[in-house]
């Protein structure tokens, strides 16, 4: 169920994070039944904020947050108006996390599902070991992004750093800008009609309207490292 289909209070429940403290803030969010609307103020770069949410509540965080914001999210719709630290939405299962700002390294690490949207840049290792999540980055991503990416889709409107998709499994990677270099076993692939459709759908869900799918290139696994071959030993 998407957030707008639920009956939610007209005004959000406001929690001053600085005053309330991390434990009580998370406890309040975790206790909600999925119909809640929360506005978190004064986060002061707190780590582990809005983690472990398991219901489709709406949470808006006004201000910058630290490590692991919305970590292991399983259904909630979390928006951060500000920059986020390392590992935003790490191991997300479902729901959405939107960052109106930039993210540090390991954004969406190991996430299994849901949608992560970052309006600005994401640092190194964006989507590392991703396992099914969809990630859309408005800006650029850092080096070693999608390292050992297993499943899901990664869309980057800006540039990608070095060693994109190193040791990649089955993630579909779409990059609009320049790719500094591809990692071991990551290759450029054709953007076939089904990929245009997939990409268009992702851009739409992320709320990106001003670009077309023709502007992207697709990257994926060459699958040469799937079983050991002595001729590939140099890649290990």
């Amino acid at each position: 169920m998407s957030p707008d289909q639920r009956v939610r209070p007209a005004h959000p429940h406001v929690i001053d994070v600085g005053e309330t403290g991390l434990r009580e803030t998370n406890r309040a969010l975790q206790a909600s039944d999925g119909t809640g609307r929360f506005l978190l103020t004064d986060p002061r770069g707190a780590h582990a904020l809005a983690v472990g949410l398991a219901s489709p509540d709406e949470v808006v965080i006004d201000g910058p947050t630290g490590y692991y914001t919305a970590g292991m999210n399983d259904g909630a719709h979390v928006t951060v108006n500000g920059n986020v630290g390392v590992g935003v939405a790490e191991n997300m299962m479902s729901g959405t996390v939107r960052v109106n700002g930039s993210a540090s390294q390991s954004a969406g690490a190991t996430a299994h599902g849901g949608l992560l949207v970052i309006s600005g840049d994401a640092g190194a290792r964006c989507g590392i070991s991703m396992k099914g999540v969809d990630i859309v980055v408005g800006g650029s991503i850092g080096h070693m992004s999608c390292f050992m990416g297993q499943a899901g889709r990664l869309v980057v409107l800006g540039d990608a750093g070095d060693a994109l998709g190193d040791s990649l499994y089955e993630v579909h990677i779409y990059v609009r800008g320049r790719v500094a270099s591809l990692g071991a076993d990551c290759v450029e692939k054709d953007l076939r009609p089904e990929h245009h459709a997939e990409l268009a759908e992702l851009l739409d869900r992320a709320g990106v309207t001003d670009v077309t799918t023709d502007e992207f290139r697709r990257y994926g696994s060459a699958r040469t490292l799937y079983t050991f071959d002595v001729d590939n030993a140099a890649a290990y």
Binding site: G45, G63, G66, N83, G85
Partner: peptide, 16 residues
């Protein structure tokens, strides 16, 4: 970490 700089004057407009 960013939070060490969150209180700096003009940080909202900084190139980060």
């Amino acid at each position: 970490e960013y939070r060490a700089m969150a209180h700096l004057p003009g940080i909202a407009g900084a190139h980060l």
